[in-house]
């Protein structure tokens, strides 16, 4: 049986852990607010961008752009894997990585090569362990996430796609739905699946724009940016999701600490009482013996 002192030390330890998890919870909630603000700031750009793309998509019938062209034979699949740099976020990273790896394995089973473009340390570590090829990895930069980062990932993937070393590209990231829900999502990045066509279903606006350069030229400018916008959106979501997941995980941990302190205190009291009882029996026994 644990001694009184052992139990006391353990209670102290659990209380300290609780302080840490509580602090991490608060830090995560502050960071989540920052991440959500960034999503908010991105929205005007994204909205306008999709408006424009929708306008143009409706105008151009069959814009032949290399980024739109699906390859007849897919030999190499690229996966952009967005995860967090740090752990202690519950199953958040594991979920994304598992989804991506499952996908990679199914592609492998079809005889395709799989390459990973990693953003975030956790994803890179997991993928590296399994020996997949990793052309680029951005590690330790999730904290300073900006559009430039998304642009560099996007550019790299597009270069490889246009250069022929990739035939299709998917992105895996944690979609931010709510504080309690951040499911892993896979998004086909390249070739661009009839970009803006869904928006094109909306009846074309009455406005007759003058385009400069002509529609196809503009699309050639818009499409690469579309890829970057998609990547950026994925990264922003991942960052928000990470903090939300960490908040939930730390909240749980704090609650578990409380429970554990309760259980340990009970044990402490029981042990103490047991000790007192034993002592009393000793004394009473001694007195009885003397009487004899």
């Amino acid at each position: 049986m644990a001694s009184l002192k052992d139990v006391k030390i353990k209670i102290g330890g659990v209380k300290k852990t609780k302080q840490i998890t509580k602090a991490m919870n608060m830090v995560a909630s502050a960071k989540l607010r920052g991440a959500q603000q960034r999503i908010e700031r991105f929205r005007p750009y994204a909205d306008k961008f999709f408006d424009m793309l929708g306008d143009l998509g409706g105008q151009s019938e069959d814009a032949a752009h290399p980024l739109l062209a699906a390859r007849d034979e897919v030999k190499t699949t690229g996966i952009v894997l967005a995860t967090s740099d740090r752990g202690l976020a519950g199953s958040f990273n594991v979920n994304i990585i598992t989804a991506a790896l499952k996908f990679a394995q199914s592609k492998k089973a079809e005889g395709k090569d799989v390459k990973f473009y990693c953003v975030g340390k956790k994803g890179r570590d997991a993928v590296r362990k399994l020996g997949y090829e990793i052309p680029t990895a951005l590690v330790g930069q999730m904290n300073a996430l900006d559009f430039g980062m998304a642009a560099s990932v996007g550019n790299r993937v597009m270069e490889d796609f246009l250069g022929g070393s990739l035939d299709e590209v998917f992105m895996f990231y944690g979609e931010f739905i709510s504080l309690a829900k951040q499911p892993p999502v896979s998004l086909p990045l390249l070739p661009i699946a009839s970009a803006g066509k869904e928006e094109g279903d909306v009846p074309a606006k009455a406005k007759d724009y003058i385009y400069e350069p002509a529609v196809d030229g503009l699309l050639a400018e818009l499409l690469p940016r579309f890829v970057k916008v998609q990547v950026y959106r994925g990264l922003l979501d991942t960052s928000a999701s990470e903090h939300a997941a960490r908040m939930a995980a730390m909240d749980n941990a704090t609650r578990n600490c409380d429970e554990m302190v309760g259980a340990l205190t009970l044990l402490y009291n029981k042990t103490r009482q047991a000790a007192i009882t034993t002592e009393l029996i000793d004394i009473v026994g001694g007195v009885e013996a003397l009487k004899g």
């Binding site: 003058i210 400069e212 350069p213 503009l218 400018e221």
Partner: peptide, 19 residues
């Protein structure tokens, strides 16, 4: 700075999209 040269916009300009 348009892709095909500088352009100016004054009030009442026709709808226009440029890179």
């Amino acid at each position: 700075p348009g892709l095909e040269g500088e352009f100016g916009v004054l009030p009442g300009h026709i709808p226009f999209i440029s890179a």
